[in-house]
Amino acid sequence: MFAFLIYILTLICIYSIIVMSLNLAMGYTGLVNFGHIGLLGVGAYTSAILTTKFDVSFIFAITFAAILCALIGALLSIPSRKIKDDYFALLTLGFLFVSGAVFINWTDMTRGTLGIRGIVRPEGFAEPISFFVLTFIMSLVTFFILEKVTNSPFGRVLEAIRDDEQVAESLGKNIDRAKMVAMTLSGFFVGIAGVFMAHFIRFINPASFWLDPLVISLAAVVIGGLASLRGSILGVILVFTISESLRFLSLPSTMIGPMRVILFMIVLLVVILFRPKGIIGRADLD
C-alpha cells in the first residue's frame, strides 16, 4: 500500500508539471495546445534514447531534452500569428499526430510499438522514495518559476493576449514574441516532465503519449481552472483520485480505461456547466 501511495504521489508530481505548463500556454496565453502531450513524448523519448543508446548522463539528457522541447514549443507558436483559436488547436493536434507517427515509425531509435525498456533512474535516485523526492522538488521548482512568471507584468501581458490579442498589440505589446516565450517555457517544462516520466516508469511506447494523457491533462487543467497554477495541481490530484478509486471497484481490467475516460468527461461536463472558470481558475476562454 505504501509503495502504491509513493507511486501515485510521484505520478501526481509529474502530471502537475505537465498541467501547469499546459496552463501557461492554454490558461494564461489562450493558446490551446493539444500538441503538449506530443512534446511530453519528445522529452521522454529523447532522454530514453540518449541514456539507453548513447549512455549519456541523466543531467545531460534532461538538459538536452528540455531545450529541444523548448525549441519545438517556440516553433509551434509561430503559426499562432496567422491561425487563431480553434484552428490553432486543430493544428497542434496535428503536431500530436506527427510526433506519434515518429515514435511509431522511427524504429531505429524508438523501437516502434515495442517501446523502449530498461530506462534507468539517475544514480542515487533508484529507489521509489528518493525518486519521488526528486520529482517533488522538480514540481516545486516548476511551480515557483511559473508562479513568478505569471505574477509578473509579463504574465499580465500573456493574460491580455488571451483576452484580446489585438487590443494588447494596440497597446504596443510585441505579442508574437510574448507568445513565443510562453510556448518556449511551456515546452521546456513539459519536456522535463517527459524525462521524469520515462525514468520513473522505465518503459515508454507510443501509447504512453497518446490520447489518455491528453484527456487527463485537459481534464485537470479545466477542472482546476484556467490561469491558476494551484488549480492545476488541485485538478491533477482530483483526476488521479477519481481514476485510482476505480481500481477499488473490482471492475474487469478492460473496462477501467473506458470507464476512466467516461468519468472524466462527466466531471468535465459538470465543471464546464456549473463552474466555467474551474474550481479556482480566474479566466474563461470564449
Binding site: 504574465g155 499580465r156 510574448a178
Partner: peptide, 27 residues
C-alpha cells in the same frame, strides 16, 4: 469597448501604461 475581460480595471490600465512588460527578462 474591448477589454481584457478576465482582469481587473487596474491590471487593464497597468498593461496600457507599462512599456517593457512584453519583455520576458524584464520581469
Amino acid at each position: 469597448s474591448r477589454m481584457f475581460r478576465n482582469l481587473s480595471i487596474e491590471d487593464n490600465l497597468l498593461i496600457a501604461l507599462r512599456e517593457d512588460d512584453d519583455k520576458f527578462l524584464k520581469m
